[in-house]
Design a binder for these strands. Sequence first.
DNA 1: GGCATGTGTATTTTT
DNA 2: TACACATGCC
Length: 708
Amino acid sequence: MAVSWIEELNPAQREAVEHGEGPLLVVAGAGTGKTKTLACRVAHLIGKGVRADRILLLTFTRRAAGEMISRVRHMVETTEVAGVWSGTFHSVANRLLRIYGRAIDLSPEFTVMDQADAADMMNLIRNDLGCAKGKKRFARKQTLVKIYSHTVNAQKPLSEVVERYFPWCAEDLEAFAAIFQEYTQRKRRHRVLDYDDLLLYWRMLCATLPTGKTVADRFDHVLVDEYQDTNAIQSEIVRAMRVSSQNVMAVGDDAQSIYSFRAATVRNILDFPEAFPGTHVVTLEENYRSTKPILAASNAVMQQAKERYTKELRSDRESGEKPVLYICQDEAEQCEVVCGTILEHREQGIDLMQQAVLFRASHHSAQLEVELTRRNIPFHKYGGLKFIEAAHIKDMLAILRIIENPYDELSWFRVLQLLDGVGPRTAHKIMTALTGGPAADTEAGVATPLRRLFAEPPTAPSAAREQFAGLRSALADCVGVKLNGASPEPRASARADDRSPDAPDAPRGSVPLPVQVERVRRFYEPICEAAYENPKPRLRDIEQLELIAARYRSRGRFITDLTLDPPTSTSDLAGAPHLDEDYLILSTIHSAKGCEWTSVHIIHAADGMIPSDMATTDEAGIEEERRLLYVAMTRAKDHLLVHFPLRYYHTKHRRGDGHSFAQLSRYLDTDVMTYFQQKAAVEPSEPDPTKPADREQLDDWLNKLWTE
DNA sequence: GGCATGTGTATTTTT
DNA sequence: TACACATGCC
């Protein structure tokens, strides 16, 4: 078979790709061909005769997995590539647990809840336990999830986590413990797993013999991408998966670790050789992405890091163009400069798709989005609010979830409150009427709450009566029950318990999924129209949901995939029909990880934005923000433009005209600035010699920013 | 009295 | 958008 791609590798890459048996650590700097190396390694293994389905490739996002696999496909002359187990830790966990879950007493019917669902459940428990009753303020639901998740993922005692990362709510420690205990039990009762459970259960599965060994031995090779952003559990999983065989390859860059808020720890990559004795280490330092000046500036940012990194990236790509620091008067001017430069670059032949605008927090691009829309520049945004997080999509999914798992209290709670005149209290009452009662119910079949709803519906408040009936008949249609008939026996009770564990795709129930989704939409549409000022884009999102559903046969699979791998952007502006057109990329820096563009804009390079105010309370946080800027800068191939608005207006608190002056990001100090060329934004076309004083004053003032 | 719903304010990063 | 708090309905 053709192996010309092997010739294209540099010696270090080739060493990694052709490495034989045993543990391998690849420390790969930004733009050093990490993805290529991983893909080639997979291709190499398959070429050597390793069966594709005995290769496990763990990536950070599903997107990365897809890209990797499609690259492999181009290198290998076999269609077998599709058999490679690739995906995020979470999605692989989900897949394995559906097959082997019974070994740890986990029904393969479990549903997966996302972070927002977890937060809602925390909130219910918080109210049930009366934690919010006290006069003093109590941690909000999101915070509860953060604390819980961090504790679990870091594998540290709750007290330690709270003290270190959430000191302001240290006095509620006992309440947290009680809430988390109930949270754990409730999830179990409802057969629901959160993101963290997927990892915990996978690890548990590995530790449970003999199944654990079966699971681990299913794979000849385990490859892990972005190892610097794995957390304690994930590294334990990798270890547990490699007991009999030591064939494991970890790839990462300690200078790009930016997920400590998810309890990721650089220690994993640093300690890898200790965890796997005999590890062969390969370092990739040859950068093929960026021009020399861009790399020099990026390296300069890292030069100041408290912790020194072992690599210094090199590039052969000559260029006379230094990165640009654009000083803008305010955010509006920043928008103009960005839009202007983007169009200019496009005139020079750089497609919009080859250009990106990066920012620290997803709302930082709000004003720019308006401007782009005004100027008819199409864009796609990564990061920020996702399709699945939109309220109307969650509503739709909650209804489908009820059908999937009628004991899913959380979904009932959400759905019932859609009805007029139904709030938390009434919803709770109806729910207990449906899901409560004798324990035998659990044995009698999963669909019992639905059966009750059909046979003896609880009374709803008068305002909700009609809608409640509508919900009831929609649900009945979805499970194929005739409401007026004498036998309200849901056919879904003939559940696919007996289907082979390897085929979780098997359809259950007799109503096709697209029909169900369509039926649910017909129920939900009027509610959506009444609830929102401008329902049209939302209704379109729902149509989008129907389109996605058309690709699935199994409702459960559909829901789970949507939670584990949500579509990245909402379709309100540019929308799906224009997908083949050229569009600009807007992305949070976190979501930009692993990507590259010919031209990159970094906006809001002001202190307080990068680094984020929220992250500057301790040194570790400040250092991580530095790496974040480094990641952003190293995404650029040919053009790097950093934008700094001088003024920020306070629109909320003060009357209109209040503003404050910003400081340039602390990472762009005098030394680093020597690697940049500075431009003041929209000056009148030529420098105005009649007003030298103003210019000088401005320059003086600017200079102070980096000399002080 | 309990409960639903309206109003103003602050918003990191993601599987 | 989502939360906390205040008001107004049954």
